[in-house]
């Protein structure tokens, strides 16, 4: 067997591992970069934008009881289209043109980690 063939075999075998790693978006890093500016670095709704002028409180994601009331689909929709899609404030911006589907899924997962809850199903 030639060395080249072995290399090719290795690349084919490892390919899925590499692409898998590229796709597994890091919910915590995404949250820290895009969401913490309003929702706070710990997700408690107290980011630097929440000054006295800010008209509505960004959701505190550690409030388990509140977060139980919404489903993963609700969270996904608000992230994609912004507050108004769920009759909430436009101060929650739409991220559908900014984030990939995989990144949005990672964020849903991370919010569930913050609330330590699963939310209503459906």
């Amino acid at each position: 067997m030639s060395r080249l063939f072995l290399m090719a075999l290795l690349i084919v075998a490892l390919g899925p591992v590499f692409t898998g790693a590229a796709q597994a978006a890091d919910g915590k890093a995404l949250f820290g970069f895009y969401c913490a500016q309003c929702h706070g670095t710990e997700g408690e709704g107290d980011g630097p934008n929440v000054t006295g002028d800010f008209p509505v409180d960004p959701r505190n994601f550690t409030e388990t009881a509140e977060m139980e009331k919404i489903s993963d689909a609700d969270i996904r929709n608000v992230i994609i289209d912004g507050g108004p899609i769920a009759d909430k404030s436009p101060m929650m911006p739409p991220w559908g043109k900014t984030l990939t589907d995989a990144e949005i899924e990672a964020l849903v997962g991370y919010l569930r980690q913050l609330c330590n809850c699963t939310g209503k199903t459906g």
């Binding site: 500016q37 309003c38 934008n49 002028d53 800010f54 436009p90 101060m91 911006p93």
Partner: peptide, 9 residues
């Protein structure tokens, strides 16, 4: 200030 509040940030 309202529709797509740039003012938030």
């Amino acid at each position: 200030i309202k529709k797509m509040p740039c003012s938030g940030c």
